[in-house]
């Protein structure tokens, strides 16, 4: 495994830790989109169907378990924890996330590497992950006072995707037959969706002011 891939995974892991830390320590999920979190839980379930059937490495299995476990615990906290759920911005988080699920499923049935169940679910998870951040970005735009942890969480998620792209470029040039158009294009789309956010993130960082996306 190359350093870019490891850095990508670690950034992803840290983003989840930042979010859980926010939920645990200040007992608040303000500014976090439950829609996005539910989509991520669905992404991991459909992607890691092979977790107990194909052994890749101990690292791989542990990371899969962590992403599955953390995504479900975040959803649980936001839905059922008696204190945390009160801070959920339900009225603002109105993105109709099921409108993303069906098109992704249809696209996965039409465009995939192999027409098998696991392969289609894997492809579906790639398409869904690419757009899963949209409810969160919409919520961020609507929220007036976004706290720093929420902004860092979104930034780390975007950074993870950017690092994965660098990892793919590296692997393309160093590994024979490493060619995965579907993964690359969905990853690229996902990163582009962060473009606007990144722009305002760096602007707020440069000017040392609180990030707020323009309406």
């Amino acid at each position: 495994m190359n350093i870019l891939r490891l850095a990508g995974d670690m950034t992803h892991l840290i983003s989840v830790i930042v979010l859980l830390l926010k939920i645990h320590s200040i007992k608040s999920c303000a500014g976090i989109s439950l829609k996005t979190q539910e989509l991520y839980a669905l992404v991991f379930v459909s992607r890691y169907l092979n977790i107990f059937t194909d052994f890749i490495s101990l690292y791989n299995t542990i990371m899969k378990l962590i992403f599955l476990g953390t995504s479900f615990s975040i959803v649980w906290y936001m839905r059922y924890h008696k204190i945390v759920r009160r801070s959920y911005d339900k009225d603002q988080d109105t993105f109709r996330h099921y409108f993303l699920v069906l098109p992704c499923l249809i696209l996965a049935l039409l465009i995939n590497e192999r027409f098998t169940f696991k392969e289609i679910m894997w492809t579906f998870s790639l398409y869904l992950e690419a757009v899963a951040i949209l409810p969160q970005l919409v919520l961020l735009q609507r929220t007036k006072n976004t706290d720093n942890l929420t902004v860092q969480y979104i930034f780390l998620l975007g950074a993870y995707r950017a690092l994965y792209i660098l990892n793919w470029i590296y692997r393309y040039f160093t590994e024979p037959d490493y060619l995965h158009w579907i993964t690359w294009i969905s990853g690229l789309v996902q990163t582009i969706l962060y473009g606007d956010f990144f722009y305002y993130y760096f602007l707020s960082w440069k000017n040392n002011v609180k990030l707020q996306l323009p309406a």
Binding site: N50, S57, K64, E113, E119, W122
Partner: peptide, 10 residues
């Protein structure tokens, strides 16, 4: 060849 290709990434 495995039914399930690539998949060493998360």
């Amino acid at each position: 060849e495995a039914e399930f290709s690539l998949k060493d990434e998360l």
